[in-house]
Computed example of a mutant assay.
Amino acid sequence: MTASHAPVLFIHGLWLHATSWDAWVERFAAAGYEASAPGWPGDHDTVGASREHADDIADHGIDDVVEHYARVIRDLPVRPILVGHSFGGMIAQRLLGEDLAVAAVAIDAAQIKGVLPLPLSALKATLPVFKNPANRHRAVSLTAEQFRFAFGSAIPEEESDALFERWAIPAPGKPLFEAAAANFNPHSAAKVDTANAGRGPLLLIAGGQDNTVPEVVTRATLKQYRHSDATTDFLDFPDRAHSLTIDHGWGDVADASLAWLGEQGL
């Protein structure tokens, strides 16, 4: 790690294994960053083991995941840059708002408290969890068809199915239930300190074809930061869906993130 480069932590979201960041870790390492992608609590080292031991993933909520990554950060010599996708993007925003990171890139980030739009496509994408209230305490898997709608809606079916086979793992239902109730809970785990004027810069990235986190959600998230003077930027990829970090166009998103970090002097 060079003196001018902070370490980078990649944070995955629901239904993807941490190794789905492998190509990003290599790209950032080639750019001079010390990069790593620790999994969520309960994740196993491989996709296969995570599928086999789904109960270990179950019942971890947003606070559990935030504290898990906070412990990882405390073991680093300096505060890191965070790059998060989906719920990983929400986690990154919370950690940044708590001054545990020097900057964050939140890609198709899950809704934080205060964001009101709830598009029908987002409801359909998360229906596998919400159709049964008991899923709050379970790990829930997607089928290949459900994965295509939630993640691979802007890529060929064959590519979506291949990504599903390679990276998809069960996900805890609890974070989705917590996020859904966020605007009715003053102490919600999905609450982010969006007014923190002293935090590091934040880049919000949206996929214009995303069914799980539609662009309107990311734009509404951007508005939540209007009371802070800290840098908050927005970038959209109009033809991309929720798979934008792992599909054939992932390099465009990674390079845009690297370029933005360079603009921030990071």
Rank of each mutant, 00 (worst) to 15 (best):
T231Q: 09
P172G: 04
A168M: 13
R219D: 11
E67M: 12
L244W: 00
F28P: 01
F130Y: 14
H248P: 13
L116F: 06
L116I: 14
A106H: 00
P201L: 07
A37V: 02
E178V: 09
E263P: 05
K191P: 03
K223E: 15
T245K: 05
H187C: 14
E215I: 14
A254M: 05
A206C: 07
M1E: 13
R79P: 00
L222I: 07
A3Q: 12
A109E: 04
V217D: 04
M90I: 12
R27V: 06
S243D: 08
H68K: 07
A197T: 15
H5R: 14
G208T: 03
R240W: 05
A190W: 01
V47A: 05
L258T: 02
G208S: 14
W260E: 07
P214S: 09
S188K: 11
L95M: 11
A182M: 08
R94K: 13
A230D: 14
G173Y: 00
V140N: 03
F234G: 04
A103D: 08
V78R: 10
I169M: 07
L235A: 09
R138M: 10
A254G: 05
R226Q: 11
E157S: 15
G207K: 00
D63P: 05
R199F: 07
A189G: 12
L82N: 04
V78S: 15
E157A: 14
R94A: 06
T245F: 09
A162M: 10
